[in-house]
């Protein structure tokens, strides 16, 4: 059984090769850091003061996550999750997949795990990108020294974990929609509408009920607390709750489907 899972995972991992979803992960991971590098090189005269600051790394982290938490990460998860599930519909291959000697639960969870692994891959690439956005101006000899502040490993790890947890509800709901609908526009369109809804709900006192808000709240709670009605309760628990709820619903719908390809 664990072997089945491992081999199924290897097969599913191979399917994402050369897919648009895998490119989104790579491009998404380096997009914001590239913009930051360009901006810093253009405004190189301000770099010396910036690199000398004690909170250099945390302020870099905040500016890197600004567009990522609000815009790029939620929409990237919507798009890449929908694209991964779409691979089977697009290639008319559900029927092939459902006649291989694997339990339906193995198929369901390995596919989900591949998407989670891709999200993890994105986080790794994004962190590498953030680090490179700090060191590339220094390596290019733009007259700045290596950042004086100590690299806050713990802070980075903690924040990574929180953002990761916060986007799991989006991933789970998009997975549910992606498995259900052959038409790619349904999961993507629904995801987009929910994202717009989440933006609108940020200043509402019950905004935390919208499962697409958590990455935004996590960023805004420290970066711009006045811009949102930051909930008093722990949003990360809410994210875990929604993730479990959507995954369970998705699994039940998938397993009880009368037509499997």
């Amino acid at each position: 059984m664990p072997n089945d899972f491992l081999h199924s995972f290897q097969g599913e991992w191979l399917k994402r090769k050369r897919s648009l979803a895998s490119w989104i992960v790579v491009i998404g991971g380096f997009f914001t850091p590239t913009i930051i590098i360009i901006a810093r090189l253009v405004n190189y005269e301000q770099l010396a003061a910036l690199y000398a600051k004690a909170d250099f790394w945390t302020s870099l982290w905040q500016s890197s996550w600004e567009s990522m938490a609000i815009f790029l990460l939620p929409l990237g998860v919507v798009l890449s999750t929908s694209l991964i599930t779409q691979i089977e519909y697009k290639n008319n291959s559900w029927k092939q997949l459902h006649t291989v000697p694997l339990n339906f639960s193995t198929i369901f969870f390995t596919k989900l795990l591949v998407i989670i692994a891709m999200l993890l891959q994105f986080f790794i690439l994004f962190n590498i990108g953030i680090y490179l956005s700090a060191v590339i101006p220094w390596l290019l000899g733009s007259g700045v020294a290596y950042p004086a502040a100590t690299f806050p490993y713990k802070y980075f790890l903690q924040e990574n974990a929180l953002y990761f947890i916060d986007c799991l509800p989006i991933l789970a709901l998009q997975y549910l929609l992606g498995l259900q609908y052959k038409n790619f526009l349904v999961p993507v369109g629904t995801g987009f509408i929910l994202w717009v809804g989440a933006l609108a709900a940020l200043s509402w006192k019950y905004g935390y009920l919208v499962p697409y808000t958590y990455c935004m709240y996590n960023h805004l709670k420290t970066a711009a607390p006045g811009k949102a009605a930051i909930p008093a309760l722990n949003i990360h628990y809410m994210a875990v709750f929604y993730f479990i709820l959507f995954t369970a619903a998705s699994f039940i719908i998938y397993i009880t489907k009368k037509e499997k390809g």
Binding site: Q10, K15, S93, L102
Partner: peptide, 16 residues
């Protein structure tokens, strides 16, 4: 899987 080669298509099933 249209984005994979013949050998890759077989390879993912060979693993299973």
């Amino acid at each position: 899987y249209g984005h994979l080669t013949a050998s890759e298509n077989l390879s993912l099933l060979q693993k299973i």
